[in-house]
Design a protein around this nucleic acid. Structure first.
Length: 643
DNA sequence: GTTCTTAAAA
């Protein structure tokens, strides 16, 4: 009998012909189902499609097991909704609709097409609903940003006695994160606890961490994160970006190190880019290089790390190491738009405007089309290099040659381009001719040019316009008060300060920083906290005297002649960059490049002294301010004294 | 013997 059973499909004596056919058919549908699933899982939708076509040509029909795979295949191939509707009517004809797995797939399909009533119709037809079907409804609404509907279904399922699971809740949470609705997110947190939703699900916990980070409640996020038994890339990444948003570079690096040392989780590319952004923002090359090392170790294939390479180039640019950025850029095998734009921006920030424009030509030759960000990079490169004519041409070509409409950021670049070059009237006319209402930042851009060229009348006008749009813009008050200080109008100055005080606005205190032997040193105005402060101040004085001897008059034009001593100190930049430079010169005798960062614009006085020191000590110095980089070498600066 | 629902990103 055993033997007979094995021979069954082949022996007409034991079974009728039609039975054999059914047997083969069933067998084939099963094989077909598994094959198509294998193709889908290995990401070969085309193979799945050819397989399906062959299957149909042989006269076979899909069964209920086939439907979910077919729907998945539709999405992978981006088929229009019509295809999906065919599936729906097939399901109804064959009576598969009450198969809950089939109907759940249909619900998901309609949500993906954005056809919500289609999902609801299917849902209403089903008599026996399980957690997964309910969850599909919640997920569908929440992924489409319809948070209220998602919450409604969450409540309804509980009322009907279906207990939501971790997946249900994390779906709602992601919508809360996207919409930044902290209170609802906390509500969902409470709901999950009340309804005994299992909380030791790693994905759910990560979703909570992510939600609290996105809703700007880092403390809650940290509390959950610290208690997690197992962490995944999402939770690590959420907490790292949370610290980054909070401006705490130290914590970012601390957590990142914990992650790497822990060794369990490989940092993903988004984690690496967050960390690199922090390193770039603080010019922390030391840690930036460590992350570079991580990436090199992790990636075996150069082609897989384009996003990381782009972030690295940006980090080196912002850390003031243009040479490394260029070297890396040249080595990237398949550069994309971001790669080119980052490098163009990098040249611009380092004062190499001509190189930026040449690189743009190379980019076009390689067949890559610029986008609006590329034009921001180009226009700001022109404004840093005083290339007014070139900037105008590029601005004109934006719409004419690339069909890109200039936006507010481009307008701001143009105002800056004219203003920085001293064409204040043209800058003003440009603002007047703009097709949209200028924002506060446009007027602030004009204001900062007015300060460079000491046009108090226009400055007051620009400041007024900017403050009308936002009376809390501290930068505007500060620029204006410096201009009053420059021209010795003490009454106006104290008026501005009074307004600032009333509004609770604090002037930004100047500080500079420098990295030495793996440590970061920070200097504030009239800082005497350092153990070698006395030597630093003496050294600065010595340089001042040497400069006077050779006829380099230190430029005090930034301060009016009748300025009081304390105004000189506080209203200029505070000269914290001088302190940082003196510190390095005392502490380090190597000939390596000196890199100093500053949170405010460099003042003329310090700029002159840095040039002198670079010649006198024969050292290269890079000074970063919020807008750009100055490279001092042999008594010259890369900005050609224009910044 | 198979099928359905989760989290972020330059």
């Amino acid at each position: 009998m055993q033997n007979a059973k094995r021979l069954l499909p082949y022996n007409p004596f034991f079974t009728s012909f039609s039975n054999i056919k059914a047997e083969i058919k069933h067998h084939s549908t099963y094989t077909f189902n598994t094959t198509i699933r294998t193709h889908l899982n290995s990401n070969h939708p085309e193979k799945a499609l050819t397989h399906f076509t062959k299957f149909k040509e042989q006269g076979f029909l899909p069964d209920s097991f086939t439907i979910p795979s077919l729907i998945k295949l539709c999405f992978r191939l981006n088929q229009p909704p019509l295809h999906g509707e065919n599936i729906h009517s097939f399901v109804i004809r064959k009576g598969y609709l009450q198969d809950i797995i089939v109907s759940t797939s249909l619900v998901e399909m309609y949500f993906k097409y954005g056809f919500f009533s289609g999902s609801c119709n299917v849902f209403d037809e089903i008599s026996q609903r399980d957690v997964v079907l309910w969850t599909a409804m919640v997920t569908g609404f929440s992924q489409n940003g319809l948070l209220n509907e998602a919450l409604e279904f969450l409540g309804r399922m509980v009322k009907e006695g279906i207990r939501p699971n971790g997946i249900t809740v994390s779906s709602v949470l992601s919508a809360c994160s996207k919409l930044m609705v902290l209170n609802l997110g906390r509500g969902v947190h409470g709901f999950s606890i009340r309804n005994n939703v299992s909380m030791d699900d790693m994905v759910l916990e990560s979703a909570f961490v992510d939600m609290y980070v996105k809703c700007n409640n880092l403390n809650y996020a940290i509390r959950i994160f610290d208690r997690m038994k197992n962490r995944n890339s999402v939770s690590w990444n959420a907490i790292i970006t949370g610290h980054a948003h909070n401006g705490s570079g130290e914590n970012v690096l601390r957590v990142f190190k914990e992650m790497v040392w822990g060794g369990r989780e490989q940092p993903g590319s988004s984690t690496l880019t967050s960390v690199l952004q922090v390193c770039g923002g603080t010019s922390d090359l030391l840690h930036g290089r460590e992350v570079h090392g991580c990436i090199v170790k992790r990636c075996t294939c150069n082609l897989d790390r384009l996003v990381e390479d782009n972030a690295l180039i940006d980090m080196y640019v912002k850390g003031g190491d243009l040479d490394s950025a260029v070297a890396l850029f040249k080595g990237v095998p398949a550069k994309n738009l971001v790669t080119w734009t980052t490098m163009i921006m990098g040249y611009g920030m380092h004062g190499l405007s001509k190189e930026a424009l040449e690189l743009f030509n190379e980019m076009k030759e390689s067949g890559i089309q610029p986008d609006s960000i590329t034009f921001i990079a180009l226009l700001s490169a022109c404004s840093h290099g005083e290339l007014v004519k070139e900037g105008e041409q590029i601005y004109m070509s934006m719409h004419r040659d690339y069909n890109i409409n200039p936006e507010m950021k481009h307008f701001a670049c143009m105002v800056d381009l004219y203003g920085r070059a001293g064409f204040l009237q043209q800058a003003y006319n440009f603002i007047e001719s703009m097709p949209v209402e200028p924002t506060e930042f446009i007027w602030a851009a004009l204001l900062s040019s007015c300060r460079i060229y000491k046009n108090l009348g226009l400055a007051e006008k620009a400041a007024k316009k900017a403050l009308l749009l936002n009376q809390h813009n501290a930068g505007v008050y500060i620029l204006l008060s410096r201009m009053y200080a420059d021209s010795g109008q003490w009454e106006d100055l104290s008026k501005v300060r009074l307004v600032m005080k009333d509004l609770g606005l604090k002037p930004v205190t100047a500080h500079s920083w420098v990295e030495l032997e793996g440590k970061l040193y920070t200097f504030t105005v009239r800082d005497r906290l350092n153990s070698c402060s006395d030597r630093m101040y003496r050294l600065i004085d010595t340089f001042k005297q040497r400069m006077q001897k050779v006829g380099c008059v230190s430029d005090d034009s930034g301060v009016g002649n009748n300025a009081r001593e304390e105004e000189k100190e506080s209203d200029l930049c505070g000269h914290t960059e001088k302190l940082a430079l003196a510190f390095v010169l005392i502490k380090s005798h190597s000939q390596s490049l000196i890199r100093i960062g500053k949170n405010l614009r460099v003042c003329k006085d310090c700029h002159e002294m840095f040039k002198f020191i670079s010649e006198f000590t024969d050292r290269e110095i890079i000074l970063k301010d919020p807008n750009r980089y100055h490279k001092f070498r042999h008594g010259q600066c890369s900005c050609s004294d224009f910044w």
